[in-house]
Each structure stands twice: as C-alpha cells, then as structure tokens.
C-alpha cells in the first residue's frame, strides 16, 4: 500500500438489479484526506459511498482499505463509519446509549466504556445531553450525536451522507467547522457525499465530481472552481455561459462566431457571469432581466448568440430593462474545456 492509495476503488462496478449504477470506477484516496463526492442526484455518489461501507453488493472490481481487500468483508467488520443523512439515531436509546452502542458490541464495558463515551460526547459538545432521547434534540445536535457515535469507533474511513443538507444556514457553517476540526484532530480519512458545490468547495481537500456513475473530474476546490475540464463540471460549479468550440470559433445558436481574441485549443469555453465584459466588445445584446445583488448587478441578455448572463460591480452605471448594449466574451478569461457533452 502506498500512502496515496489508503482507500482504493479499482474497476468498481455497481448495479441496481440489471441497470448499471456505477461502471468501472477507479479512485485512490490518501490517508487523512477529506474528499467530497460531488454530483447531481442519481450520479452514483451515494451508491459508491454505500459500496465503500459494505451496504451495497459489489458486482465486480475491488475495494481496498489500508492494505487489504475488503470487497467481500461484511459491513459490520469493515471499520468504516457512516453518518447518515437523516442521522439514523436509535430512537429508543438515550444519547449516551447511542454513542455506547458500537463500543458495547466490541465488548467494551465499565470505566473504559464510560470514559470513551464521555469523551466522545465532550468532543461534540453534548456532555450535558447524555440522558436525552434523540427526539428531544435539534437537528444539529442529532447530527453531532451521529458523528460522535461513529467517531468513538475509531473508523479507518468516515463516510458522511449529505452532512449539511438538513441544517439551516447558521448551523451549516458551524457543522462545517466542526467536521474540519474533527478531521484535523483525529486525522481520520473522510469522504462526504453532496450535491451542493458550495459545500464541497468549502470543506474538501479534493473534490470528485461524478456524473452518471463516472468520474468527470478530480481536483482541488481551486481546480474545480477555476479550471473545470468539462462542460458538465463548468455548469455544475456556476459557469453560466458555456459554448463548444469549432475550428477556433464559438459555436452558438446564432452560428459560428469569431471571438475578439484567439481562443486556446479546447472543445469548449466557459465564462462565469463575472467574466463577461459589458460596455465594450463586438457583440450586441438587449437587457431582458436585471437583479441587484448588493455588491454587484446581474443581467440576463438576449443576444444573437443566445442568452448570456453577466455580472458587474454595482458601482458601475446600471443598464435599464430593455437597454441595448455591447459586450465581450474575452477568450483569455474563459475556462477552456477539454470535454464538451
């Protein structure tokens, strides 16, 4: 085992009945990494996570963890923890008993057990809630119990299913910090599944973008955000103006268009609304929609090359609805896409 492949999925194929959910997936994860599996629903991210946990039968391929093949190891012997989206706390047990559940199954008893449970509860700030039932806790507290319940087992890999999606905005930030802290303190390898790019960008060391059971792109948050390699990823991380390239020309609904400067060789180009220049440039458009977003204004333009979304600083002069204007799609600012689907 090399350090770069602490957890390794090799040619992993997963199916639901006869329909393939994940074909031939290869992925290597380093020890102590915080990985996000990012993609829309149905992209196979949850299925992949369940296969790592052992809750999903593997059709072919391997799952290796810490040097051994765990493909056929049953879920209860894998040392893999999972924090469920809905937390899946045991409703008939107190918070304390929930956290003690796995430790007791390991045969831990008495003072050792108590010390471990108490420190687990302390680490998520719930020492005073030990005797409560899960139903008496808020969503955020329930999730912390679920986190503590998994972490006291000292798993080799901790999986989290949409860890922030059920929390309100304020708790989301809190939990994000909490997860990063736990990860830093324990050094546990963490993989979380999300459909929210902001969540993945904020939390992960590396992001794995998935689509239809396949990996679209793996990279750091900066890579994914600034240098998407496919139109799918570009779209997913907020590029609004995405066009294929053909012979150095932009292929639009208004035909092949020359850009103001020479584009790089790529299958396509993508611009965030912020990258569109208003007021100068070779293209004409009409303002169809406008919205004020505090620091900036967003415009939806009707143009001969199709709808364009632009965003400019609020300090710049505003265009009224229906105004005619010129704009530019600067090739040097665009993200070049290697694949266009």
């Amino acid at each position: 085992m090399s350090d770069a492949s602490y957890l390794s999925l090799q040619k992993l194929t997963l199916t639901y009945g006869d329909s393939p959910a994940v074909p031939d997936l290869d992925l290597d994860i380093r020890k102590g990494e915080l990985i996000a599996l990012l993609g829309p629903s149905g992209c196979g991210k949850t299925t992949t996570m369940r296969a790592i946990a052992g809750l999903m039968p593997v059709k072919s391929g391997r799952v290796r963890l810490d040097g051994s093949d765990i493909t056929r190891v049953p879920a209860n012997k894998r040392a893999v923890g999972l924090v469920f989206q809905s937390y899946a706390l045991f409703p008939h047990l107190s918070v304390y008993e929930n956290v003690a559940f796995g430790l007791k199954l390991k045969g831990m008893r008495g003072q050792e057990l108590d010390a471990k449970v108490q420190s687990g509860l302390k680490s998520v700030g719930l020492s005073n809630f030990a005797n409560r039932r899960p139903a008496e806790l808020s969503g955020g507290q329930q999730q912390r119990v679920a986190l503590a319940r998994s972490m006291v087992m000292e798993p080799k890999v901790l999986l989290l299913d949409e860890p922030l999606s059920n929390l309100d905005a304020r708790l989301r930030l809190e939990m994000r910090t909490e997860l990063q802290r736990v990860q830093k303190e324990t050094g546990v390898t963490m993989i979380f599944v999300t459909h929210d790019q902001a969540e993945a960008l904020a939390l992960a060391d590396r992001i794995v973008v998935m689509k239809s059971g396949k990996i679209e792109q793996i990279g750091s948050p900066e890579d994914i955000y600034n240098r998407p390699t496919s139109s799918f990823v570009a779209d997913f991380v907020g590029f609004e103006n995405i066009f294929p390239l053909e012979n150095g020309k932009l292929k639009t609904s208004g035909g092949l268009i020359n850009l103001s400067s020479q584009p790089p060789s790529a299958a396509g180009l993508a611009w965030r609304p912020r990258m569109v220049t208003l007021g100068i440039g070779p293209f004409r458009g009409t303002v169809r929609g406008t919205s004020f977003a505090g620091d900036s204004r967003e415009y939806l333009l009707d143009t001969p090359i199709g709808p364009i979304k632009a965003e400019v600083e609020a300090s710049q002069p505003a265009y009224a609805l229906g105004a005619e204007l010129v704009f530019d799609l600067p090739a040097e600012k665009a993200a070049p896409l290697a694949r266009f689907a």
Partner: peptide, 19 residues
C-alpha cells in the same frame, strides 16, 4: 413508521443483520 436506516447504522457499528 420506523426508519430502516437505523438497521444499517447498527450494522456499521458492528452488529450482525439479525442482531
């Protein structure tokens, strides 16, 4: 009325399916 994921949670914490 009972969530089925609590069984999976129990399994991942070391319990057998029957357990």
């Amino acid at each position: 009325n009972l969530r089925s994921d609590i069984e999976e949670a129990a399994v991942l914490l070391g319990s057998s399916r029957l357990g």
